[in-house]
Amino acid sequence: MLLNTPICDFGWKAPNFTLSDPSGNQFTMIDNLGDKGLVIAFICNHCPYVKAIADRLALDASILIDEGINVVAVMSNDYRDYSADNPENMAIFAAQHSFPFLYLVDEDQSVGKAYGAICTPDFFGLNHLGQLQYRGRIDDAQMGDASKRSPELLDAMRLVAQTGRGPKQQTASMGCSIKWRD
């Protein structure tokens, strides 16, 4: 089911969390927040929308990380019903797309629910105080040709890093619904 993310709730305080990578190493949101902010990307392995943007996400994340803006990805899908999203396949997917960021398992789906994540991909751009400043799409290319794209997430996070505030105009991300457990 195709869904769109809601409008950015500017200033919403992101809750801290502790999640593991596919190897079982634990990481917290607060330890990754950083002086210039943090992007939390809710993604999965099987969604065609995520597959379409995965390489662009890796590229933009590399640029953001080089500029001191941290990036993590969270997989909240119920991987027991969607085995393509299990931790072993997460590690494979991350390697295939050269993800330069942590890709974390939301085992009990509590983080996805706490954040109000809607779809994959769903981007949360936080300032250095952990306040939401961006809830938009990665770029304007969507599933099409990305050769002349406008990197909206990258531009927004650069603004957040400089000013602590995101752009007033944001276009919702769209993707597959998160697969919640019954």
Rank of each mutant, 00 (worst) to 15 (best):
M1D: 11
M1N: 11
N4W: 08
C8A: 10
K13W: 01
N16H: 04
N16T: 02
T18E: 14
T18Y: 01
P22T: 05
N25D: 12
M29E: 08
I30N: 13
D31V: 02
V39A: 07
A41P: 12
F42N: 08
V50R: 01
V50M: 03
K51A: 05
A54T: 02
I63S: 04
I65D: 07
I69A: 03
V71W: 13
V72A: 08
V72Y: 00
V74A: 06
S76N: 05
S76G: 11
Y79W: 13
Y82E: 12
Y82K: 14
Y82R: 14
S83N: 13
N86F: 02
P87F: 06
P87W: 07
A91T: 07
A91D: 10
I92F: 00
A94I: 05
S98M: 07
P100L: 01
L102F: 06
L102G: 12
E107Q: 14
Q109A: 09
G112D: 10
K113V: 11
Y115C: 09
G116P: 04
A117S: 15
I118R: 15
T120I: 09
T120L: 07
P121K: 01
G125R: 00
N127D: 15
L129Y: 11
G130C: 05
Q131M: 10
G136L: 03
D139G: 01
A141F: 00
Q142N: 14
K148N: 14
M157K: 05
L159K: 15
R165V: 15
P167F: 08
K168Q: 15
Q169N: 14
A172S: 15
A172V: 07
G175K: 05
D182F: 09
